[in-house]
Simulated scan of single mutants.
Amino acid sequence: MSSKNSQLSALIETALVAALAMALSYIPDFASWFTPSFGAIPLVLFALRRGPKYGTLAGLIWGLLHFILGKVWYLALSQVIIEYIIAFVSMGLAGFLSVPFQNALSKDNKGRALFYATGGALLAVFVRYFWHFVAGFIFWGS
């Protein structure tokens, strides 16, 4: 497959993963004190597959889809940038562990692959949570 076809396939996959993440965000919360982000699952897996470039792009698209679908809680422009751009882009940070993750898989080292996948997921989720925490502290904590 040529480089252009490969890149086009990656971009199509990026858009599909972002759309799936958005669709999964419509699953209703099952507890008022805990709000899981089911869209994070395919996005982290995708970032581990494609790396940080496409992972962060998928996160950006996921964040922007909130605007198109009217799921944005707006207080200030800086709050929107933090919570819907920076926080969602952060989900692609799992992609920084894609090379060691894929190397472990290619060597059939499932324990090591699970370690890197878990590390990537924790990195992405905690950085995203950090940005939501910052926005909550600055804008929502009156």
Rank of each mutant, 00 (worst) to 15 (best):
L114E: 11
I68A: 10
I68K: 08
A31K: 11
S25I: 07
D108L: 14
L48P: 00
S106V: 11
I27W: 09
E13R: 09
A21T: 05
L69S: 12
G95Y: 02
A18S: 09
S3V: 13
G119H: 03
S9D: 11
G55Y: 08
S32I: 15
L65N: 05
Q7C: 11
S9F: 13
I68M: 11
A15D: 05
R128E: 08
A121N: 08
S2K: 11
A113P: 00
G92W: 00
I85S: 02
I82R: 07
N109M: 06
L16D: 03
Q102A: 13
A117P: 01
A21H: 02
R49E: 07
L114Y: 13
S78Q: 15
V89W: 03
T14F: 00
A19P: 02
L24A: 02
D29T: 08
P100M: 07
F88A: 04
T56V: 12
G59Y: 01
L45Y: 05
Y116R: 02
Y116W: 07
Y116I: 01
I27K: 11
E83G: 08
M22E: 13
S25L: 09
A21E: 04
F126C: 07
L11Y: 08
L123F: 12
R112N: 14
S9H: 12
L60A: 12
T14G: 00
P100C: 06
A31Q: 12
L64C: 04
A21K: 03
L105H: 01
A19D: 04
Y74E: 07
D29P: 04
L75R: 14
Q79W: 05
A104W: 09
G120Y: 03
F38N: 06
S9Q: 14
Y54W: 04
M22T: 13
A121C: 15
G51C: 08
A21S: 10
Q79M: 04
L123P: 05
I41F: 12
L114D: 08
W73H: 15
K71N: 14
A19G: 05
N5T: 13
V125L: 15
G92E: 00
N5D: 12
I61F: 07
A23D: 01
Y26S: 08
G55A: 10
N109Y: 03
I86Y: 02
N103M: 07
Y129D: 09
V125Y: 13
A121I: 06
N103C: 03
L48T: 00
W62D: 02
P36M: 13
G55F: 06
F34P: 05
L122F: 07
P28W: 03
G51K: 03
A18E: 04
L77S: 11
I27A: 10
I85V: 10
L69I: 11
